[in-house]
Design a protein around this nucleic acid. Structure first.
Lengths: 214, 214
DNA sequence: GGGGTTAGCATTGTCGACAATCTACCCATT
DNA sequence: AATGGGTAGATTGTCGACAATGCTAACCCC
């Protein structure tokens, strides 16, 4: 039963803009290194430059945009070192999320992740495969119910998308790594912290190798 | 030999403003729950409302300010759950930082931390003790040379300061926990990952207990 | 006394204008 | 050919003004 009568959740314009830009960056519409011209972008988004600048300050704070005074804002251009650092951060976040899940009701969490794995198995084509992989990790962090881990994760996931997009002709994401994710979900379900850690770490190491080999 | 001839690093006004506000929040000048009035604050900072709003969007993104549309921006008010979440995030970051250090030249890093511990031993009074403790953890993450961990850490350290300030009459920071930090620095110097993890985790658990018992 | 309505004021959100800065191009000089 | 100076145009940074919104106090009615 859909509730139509409920408190309005009014999102601020800069927040909406930041979300749109974050998606555009993650999906390659705004390319790494690209300068975001305020006048052009504001016209396209149908807002004035003020709120656009505000939205872009949010992305600057999270590192997706680089602000250079008097010269403008640029989409971050991820070097191989950046990729490694990003995965280091991602590993920190996801391991902490897993640990929190394991400290609580890990069995239902494992089930929820197994549901995501079942969806993964249906993914076809590079874009769907990448997104399915990301969806698993997003769900993992979401299940930890930690606002701070979730917020930090949002940024690194956008960066992950950027990397995949930048390499979409060389990045071999055509193989769904369902079994790897299933093993992780099962380890979480059964509450085995050591195995979870090992699986997550190996997963990240593998991703780093694939994204930095060019 | 000091280099005077070097590229100017011109920091943007919103960035300067965000830094100032971050410090004011961490040191209790801007109290938890407090509304930040734009006109008043802009006048005090000597800028117009535009750049102030931009700076505040940065802090909103990192969670130090809560933006409610049409009602204004408020300094985050940390509940006990927030404190636990903040330490969860901090533990994730610092453990990852330690792990990275241990994967590299951990002996000089241990020495650098022991230098900080020596400074800690000289701290007197609650404010100095808290700051000395924080300085150790900041240095730890800095030594990992990870831009992302450092950026994320900045936020949780500000939140840590907020908590300490909010509780400064009940928070017993009069005892310098030098030995605890020294043990951690020694473990890093010697390259013992299991011990480092244990010490860091225990350190965080202790801090949580102290900050959430009211 | 309590509840509802309305007006006024304070504050926030956005806009367009103007100043400041940077970049690219052209011309003159060596 | 290389270097330096000047200029125009594009873009960024900031400002003040105006519109929109929310809060509070006053007033009226039951």
């Amino acid at each position: 039963m859909t509730n139509y009568i409920e408190p309005l959740a009014q999102e601020s314009t800069p927040s909406i803009i930041a979300d749109k830009l974050r998606k555009a960056i993650g999906h390659g519409e705004l390319k790494p290194g690209m300068q975001l011209g305020e006048a052009d972008l504001a016209r396209k988004l149908g807002v004035s430059r003020g709120p656009l600048r505000e939205g872009m300050q949010r992305l600057t704070q999270e590192g997706l945009l680089i602000a250079i005074r008097n010269r403008g804002l640029f989409v971050v251009d991820m070097t191989p070192d950046d990729v490694r650092d990003m995965y280091l951060a991602r590993e920190a976040i996801e391991r902490a999320a897993a640990r929190k899940i394991l400290a609580g009701d890990h069995a239902p969490a494992g089930d929820a992740l197994l549901t995501v794995v079942a969806q993964m198995a249906k993914a076809t084509g590079p874009a769907e495969v990448s997104e399915a992989d990301i969806a698993f990790h997003e769900r993992l962090v979401e299940l930890a119910a930690s606002p701070r881990l979730s917020r930090m994760h949002q940024t690194v996931i956008t960066e992950t998308r950027m990397c995949i997009h930048a390499l979409e002709e060389t990045y071999s994401a055509s193989e769904v790594r369902v079994e790897e994710h299933r093993a992780l979900a099962e380890a979480i379900k059964s509450g085995d912290p050591t195995l979870v850690d090992q699986l997550l770490t190996a997963h990240m190491d593998d991703a780093i190798a694939r994204l930095t080999t060019r």
